[in-house]
């Protein structure tokens, strides 16, 4: 089983990294291990979190604009923003809406079909450590666990550039060697102000990677 990491520096920036797991450990055990490490550091558990993502694709080829390949519309929810619903296209705009948007998608079901088998979720515990919020979740697709997501949020800062180094240091303290480099989104708007859509974009990237892994059979690592 491959371990996938997401990192969200500064109020959620994420990076997707696949790292081989140590021998003999399952997803659950790895999550337990990370949880314990965080608690040893002094983080306090503050409930749970979840992020989910549903895929819709345009029903009929007539809808896809001028013969382009079918577009996928992703509708995501985040427990951190319980009264919101995020709708986005990959590399496209991200719409922030209220929960009635799901009702609207039901009305649109003859134009946009819900690919129910593709729903990806990440659920787990939410820890607070001083100014950091860390969310460790198990990524599941259907009923199978596909990986682990680690979201790190540095609450006081909203500009990406300023706190990446601080976040790196913090992540190294409990993730030791698995700390990734700067996230790809980082380059897009280095001085931009964070918004919740940025988080969802990162989660989407991660979930899509996880979905693609479905095609490749297990490589023998557990």
């Amino acid at each position: 089983m491959l371990l996938t990491f997401l990192f969200f520096p500064i109020f959620k920036w994420l990076q997707c990294v696949t790292v081989p797991v140590a021998e003999g450990k399952s997803v659950q055990q790895t999550v337990e291990m990370l949880n314990k490490k965080l608690e040893q550091l002094g983080a306090v558990k503050q409930g749970n979190f979840y992020v989910d993502c549903e895929t819709y694709h345009a029903g009929a080829p007539a809808i896809a604009n001028s013969g382009q390949s079918q577009k996928f519309l992703y509708v995501m929810h985040n427990s951190e923003a319980p009264l919101s619903c995020f709708a986005l296209f990959e590399n496209g705009p991200c719409l922030v809406a209220d929960p009635n948007f799901d009702v609207l998608m039901v009305k649109l079901k003859s134009y946009f079909q819900n690919a129910k088998g593709n729903k990806v979720e990440s659920r787990g515990a939410r820890y607070q450590y001083c100014d950091f919020l860390v969310k460790l979740g198990t990524i599941t697709m259907g009923s199978s666990a596909r990986g682990i997501s680690v979201e790190v949020e540095y609450c006081p800062c909203i500009v990406a550039n300023d706190s990446w180094n601080l976040m790196m240091e913090f992540m190294q303290s409990f993730l030791s060697s698995h700390v990734p480099g700067a996230p790809a989104v980082f380059g897009v708007k280095p001085d931009g102000i964070y918004s919740p859509s940025d988080t969802m974009v990162q989660y989407l990237e991660l979930f899509n990677k996880v979905r693609k892994q479905q095609a490749t059979p297990s490589t023998g690592m557990r």
């Binding site: 345009a58 577009k71 705009p93 991200c94 719409l95 809406a97 009635n100 009702v103």
Partner: peptide, 15 residues
């Protein structure tokens, strides 16, 4: 539905 300000862009992306 209450939505963010990039609605027109989003709707044209939807078709």
């Amino acid at each position: 539905v209450a939505v963010s300000h990039n609605l027109t862009e989003f709707l044209s992306e939807m078709g």
